[in-house]
């Protein structure tokens, strides 16, 4: 019963954290890995949108999320948080940005603070997966086009008109067939055929 609740000690991240870390192999070993990640986290906080290899982006994202959530939790008067920020941010003016810009921005957020996109790569090339990592609420234009289904976009108008024309042609064809069949069988059926003729045209 003496166990403390984990969620009170460590802030729960709003992204999926894999069970094992990536080693990001390099000649300097684990220390080099941390150097790489510090550079990436610094870059993310500085530029707010960066493009890099997927592995490194996904790994750095977790540390950036943790850093921001600690900053929101404890504020700038908390010594351990300040030390963490000092460790992760290589450019010291970014410490001010973290506490004075990012904390107010994300204080009331209920979702993750960063966003990771898969970046395009050449079709038949053997290259590493690329990703775009960004802070939410950045000043750049959106990467994804959210509203592709606006029916007033020119491509949708053109496709809709093509669909309409195709349907009209099909209806006319069906109506013709029915009319012919009615004529062949008996004169009694012609009334029905006419009715059928009218139906699809009006719809």
């Amino acid at each position: 019963m003496n166990q403390a609740e984990v969620s009170k000690l460590v802030s729960k991240l709003r992204i999926k954290v894999p069970p094992k870390h990536r080693k990001l192999p390099n000649p300097k070993g684990p220390e080099g890995r941390l150097d790489k990640l510090r550079k990436t986290v610094t870059g993310l906080i500085k530029y707010e949108r960066i493009e890099l290899n997927y592995n490194r982006a996904d790994e750095a994202r977790q540390y950036a999320e943790r850093l921001i959530s600690e900053a929101i939790r404890h504020g700038d008067c908390h010594k351990p948080t300040m030390d963490t920020a000092n460790f992760w941010l290589l450019e010291k003016e970014l410490v001010h940005k973290l506490f004075k810009v990012l904390v107010p921005r994300f204080e009331n957020s209920s979702v993750a603070y960063t966003k990771l996109y898969n970046a395009p790569k050449p079709q038949y090339a053997r290259v590493l997966d690329k990703a775009v990592l960004e802070l939410k609420g950045n000043p750049y234009p959106e990467l994804g086009n959210k509203q592709t289904n606006n029916k007033y976009f020119i491509q949708n108008i053109l496709l809709d008109a093509a669909k309409h024309e195709y349907r009209q042609a099909k209806y006319a064809e069906v109506a013709n067939k029915i009319g012919q069949a009615g004529n062949e069988t008996s004169p009694v059926n012609t009334e029905n055929a006419e009715k059928l003729n009218e139906k699809p045209m009006s719809s």
Binding site: N145, Q147, N150, Y152, F153, I154, I157
Partner: peptide, 15 residues
């Protein structure tokens, strides 16, 4: 632009 909420006139200008 072409992606504004109601691009009717923009589309006409484009055409």
């Amino acid at each position: 632009s072409f992606t504004c909420a109601d691009p009717h006139q923009v589309n006409r200008a484009f055409w």
